[in-house]
Structures are given as C-alpha cells and as structure tokens.
C-alpha cells in the first residue's frame, strides 16, 4: 500500500501536484538554455503530456472489484467533481438553515404579534 492511501481523499490532488512541480523543475532547467521558440513549444507539449500520463498512472492502479462495471470514466468523474459537489451541497444546506432560521424567527414574531392583539 502506498503511503498516501491513508489519506485517500487527497490522493488525486497530491499526485497532480507532484507531477506539476516535477514538470516545472524540468522545464525551468531546459528553458535556461538557448533554443528556438518552436523547440520550446515542442518541449512544453511533451512535458505536459508526460505529466498527464504520470498522473493517470498513479491514480489509476489496481483491479476493479465491483460485480457491475463502474466505468473508469464514471469513477474518475466522481473524483473530479467531488470538490465542486461537496461545496455546492454545503452552500445549499447553509442557505436552507438560514431560511429555516428566519422563517421560524418571523413565524414566532407573527404569533407574538397576534397574541399581543
């Protein structure tokens, strides 16, 4: 088991981060030397591709255990969307709580008003 399996939620970001850092270090070393713009572009493209491949190789490993095919893309899509869906859900719950609080607050003040009348 790899050490970052202990923190599975951060695995994707960690791997992408490490690959991106690696890409930047190599690119900086290469760009310090003189070269044509075309060569620089080609080099950048190759490194981007390498970074992507390395990321997926780290993320996608091991056998699937489900009895139905979860679909690699579907599995990955959930991981990619996790942050966004989580934040959207948190905001939704937050607003719902605020609405519930104010609706209770106003209904209480309404009932108090009626009692005073």
């Amino acid at each position: 088991m790899l050490w970052f399996d202990v923190f599975p939620g951060k695995r994707v970001l960690l791997v992408i981060g490490v690959c991106e850092k690696l890409r930047m270090v190599i690119a900086n070393c290469l760009y310090q030397e003189e070269g044509t713009n075309a060569m620089k572009k080609k080099c950048k493209r190759s490194l981007n591709l390498l970074s992507l491949i390395l990321s997926w190789q780290f993320i996608m490993s091991g056998p699937a255990l489900a009895y139905i095919d979860p679909g690699t893309g579907s599995y990955l899509f959930q991981m990619l969307m996790a942050g966004l869906l989580s934040s959207m859900f948190a905001v939704k719950i937050f607003w719902r709580n605020i609405r519930v609080y104010f609706s209770r607050f106003f209904s209480q003040s309404d009932s108090q008003g009626h009692e005073n009348e």
């Binding site: 979860p70 690699t72 996790a82």
Partner: peptide
C-alpha cells in the same frame, strides 16, 4: 466525455476520493 476519454484506463475500487459530503452532494 470522461467515459470516452478514460475508457481504457484501469481503476482501483479500494482507493476512494469522494468524501461523505461529496457523495451526499452527488
């Protein structure tokens, strides 16, 4: 699009990265 792009990759069902809040969000 994601299904099409990563159809040939393999995946581990033991390595998860969708926390409980994200699952409820989904």
């Amino acid at each position: 699009k994601c299904q099409k792009r990563f159809s040939s990759a393999t995946i581990s069902s033991t390595s998860g990265s969708v926390n409980n809040n994200a699952m409820l969000g989904l």
